[in-house]
């Protein structure tokens, strides 16, 4: 709310813009106040209305979805539980995400956390390798021409198809799952970074050459900032794909993790649990996406 108030005061009352002036220019205030208040009220009203829309419209569509789903589930012969049945069967999962009965019998919070750990390792590795390789591919034409066909083939291989190979390579399920994340997430990072390097305006390259900006300074002052928007676009696509990959691969590798939880619930016929877990997967995926966008904004890169 304070941010909104500041914004409007900037637009309507430039004299009062620096907060210090509020106390110093007491004699200016009476004449300024009425006009400014009117502008602020109107702007505030618009903001409130906009927020209301953002609250009301999604609520309506959510309600419609639940309603149609409920109706459908009550038809004869339908085995899919409706929203009320899901709540009745699985509310313990919703309200107790951190229970721990040992082995795999843990709350959704633990399951998701275990999956996030795998994603963090695989994704970080993909980011480091992808960015470094992306820079090299962008800069070295020979390397690009040599590797491009391979990259184009590998990037279309679905995450799950990598799993048997990685199990064969690592012989253990844990590194195999992380490898699947890595190999799924690396392509968008690698490709976007190299495209960013190739599309760097010739002007910046000329400036770097004329003003002898080389080595470490070239990397940090020219190349990284110029390619950052592309890099972060790749990182953002990759985090979504990594999350897609983890859930799939855990279904096969087992252990604690949201993917295996879903598979396990299916095998024991707990469909309601699956639906709750799906909601958790979706929300976590959204949070990951937002987190990368937030990091991009923090380092001053505007990606949409």
């Amino acid at each position: 709310m304070t941010a909104i108030a500041l914004e409007t005061s900037k637009q309507t009352k430039p004299i009062l813009d620096p907060p210090v002036n509020l106390s110093e220019n007491d004699n200016h205030q009476p004449s300024q106040k009425p006009k400014a208040e009117v502008g602020r009220d109107r702007a505030d009203e618009e903001k409130v209305r906009e927020r209301l829309r953002l609250l009301v419209f999604p609520s309506v569509s959510l309600f419609l979805l639940l309603f149609v789903w409920e109706l459908y589930s009550r038809q004869n012969g339908v085995t899919l539980p409706g929203p009320t049945a899901v709540f009745r069967d699985s509310h313990h999962l919703i309200f107790h995400p951190w229970f721990d009965n040992g082995a795999n019998d843990k709350g959704l919070g633990w399951q998701i956390l275990a999956s996030l750990k795998r994603v963090a390792i695989g994704y970080t590795a993909a980011a480091v390798v992808g960015i470094v390789l992306g820079f090299m591919l962008g800069k070295l034409r020979g390397m690009r021409q040599g590797l491009d066909p391979l990259i184009q083939v590998f990037r279309t291989v679905p995450p799950l198809a990598w799993l048997p190979i990685s199990l064969a390579i690592f012989a253990k399920s844990e590194p195999a799952a992380i490898w699947v994340i890595f190999i799924t997430a690396i392509w968008p990072i690698l490709i976007n970074t190299s495209v960013g390097v190739m599309r760097m305006p010739r002007d910046y390259e000329n400036v770097a050459q004329v003003y002898e900006i080389r080595g470490w300074r070239y990397l940090t002052l020219v190349l990284l900032p110029a390619t950052a928007p592309y890099m972060f676009t790749g990182l953002r696509i990759a985090v979504g794909m990594a999350w897609l990959g983890i859930v799939a691969s855990e279904m096969l590798t087992g252990g604690v993790g949201i993917g295996f939880f879903i598979w396990d619930a299916w095998n024991s016929g707990r469909v309601s649990d699956i639906i709750v877990a799906l909601a958790g997967v979706g929300c976590t995926g959204l949070a990951l996406d937002r987190a990368v966008a937030l990091v991009a904004n923090l380092v001053g890169t505007q990606i949409d």
Binding site: D203, N206, V207, V210, Y211, E212
Partner: peptide
């Protein structure tokens, strides 16, 4: 290119970041 021959570019070419 080199520093002994500095260029003022037509499109200013400052690093925008």
């Amino acid at each position: 290119p080199g520093l002994d021959r500095a260029v003022v570019f037509q499109s200013h070419s400052l690093l925008p970041w």
